[in-house]
Simulated scan of single mutants.
Amino acid sequence: MGILSRTSYVIRSKINSVLNRAEDPTETLDYSYEQMRDQLQQVKRGIADLTTQKKRLEMQKRRLEDNVDKHNEQARTAVQQGREDLARRALEKKKTKMNQIEDLERQISQLQSQQDSLIDQKDELQTRIEEFRTKKETMKARHEAAKASSTVSEAMTATGEEFEDVGRAIERAEEQTEDMEARAAALDELHESGAFDDVLSDKDSIDRELEELSTGSGVEAELETLKSDMGQSDSESGAASEPASDVDAEVDEDELEDLEADVDDSEVEAELAELQDEENT
């Protein structure tokens, strides 16, 4: 096989493949049915034309037969009048017309045979068309049923093109959702770790550690203060349970002023601030 032949074969096979994919069997059946009906109409028109020609010949034959009768009467009249010459001329015309009638009869017979043949072909074609119509409707119903069944099967198995697109869309949506969930989790983790604080503030890690130590030492100092206060309260409650002497009960005003002088105002302010913080929290 030469190059051109192979190329032509490949092209024809490609075209045939494209046509097979684009072809709708139901439309093809309907088109074939319409073509057969057109052929039937052509046959009917042919029969009508042939019958018309036959009728014309039959009319012409009847006119010739009338002329034959006329010439026959002319010949009789001429003989009665002793005009053999006129009788001979009338008989000659009669003979000519009879020959024409015989020729017309042969043509009419041929047309009749053709007409009968066309009528038989028309009847056969019409029968085939009716059979094809029944088969066509049956094939269309089977095709539609098979198409519906295939669509349902594709829907159940998700193998159709549309369902494949839907499946891919769902996969993409799941991937995007997972990406957004992972990003949200990462942002939460960075927020908890303080990574965003580094971006939003000018403090470095050393500043944050010092603040944590300061906060821890402040808590420890407050804890020690509470412990000391609670211990002092216990000692005072024990002392109050014993009978107090008049000497211990009396406190010199000068000593009270000395004790108040020893108290640092800053310590009082700090304690007051801590108490206010606790109330606010």
Rank of each mutant, 00 (worst) to 15 (best):
A173H: 07
S117I: 00
T127V: 12
E174R: 13
R56C: 12
G194E: 02
Q232C: 15
V79Y: 07
T96Y: 11
Y31W: 12
K122E: 10
E255S: 13
E274W: 12
A90M: 02
K55D: 11
K93H: 15
Q126P: 01
E250T: 12
G218V: 11
G231N: 14
L259H: 02
A22F: 02
K97M: 15
G82Y: 11
E92L: 06
S217V: 15
R37H: 01
I170L: 08
R37L: 03
L256S: 13
E131Q: 13
T7P: 03
A270K: 13
Q41R: 13
G238A: 15
Q176V: 09
R88P: 01
T134S: 05
S233G: 11
A249I: 10
S214W: 14
Q42H: 13
Q100M: 03
K136E: 00
R76Q: 03
R168A: 14
A261H: 08
K122Q: 11
G231D: 11
S17Q: 04
Q126F: 07
E164C: 11
R37E: 08
A182W: 00
A78P: 03
T28L: 14
E144F: 03
S149G: 14
I47V: 03
Q80H: 10
L200T: 15
L272Q: 05
E84S: 08
D69M: 06
L40K: 04
E279D: 10
A270D: 07
D207C: 02
V10L: 09
D24Q: 12
L125C: 00
S13W: 14
G238E: 07
Q42T: 12
A273C: 12
Y31H: 14
R208M: 06
D258C: 07
A173E: 05
T215E: 04
E253T: 10
S217N: 09
I3K: 07
E174W: 08
E124L: 05
V219S: 08
Y33A: 02
D85G: 07
N99A: 11
H71D: 08
E222V: 09
L29A: 01
E175C: 07
T134C: 03
E102I: 12
E144Q: 10
S32F: 12
R208S: 06
S153E: 04
Q53T: 14
G160C: 04
R45N: 06
R208C: 01
E178P: 00
S13K: 10
G218F: 12
D204Y: 02
R168W: 05
G2D: 13
N20Q: 06
R45K: 06
Y9G: 10
R128S: 04
T77V: 13
E174M: 12
R45T: 06
D116L: 01
S153D: 04
T281F: 04
Q42V: 02
I101E: 03
S205H: 14
S13T: 09
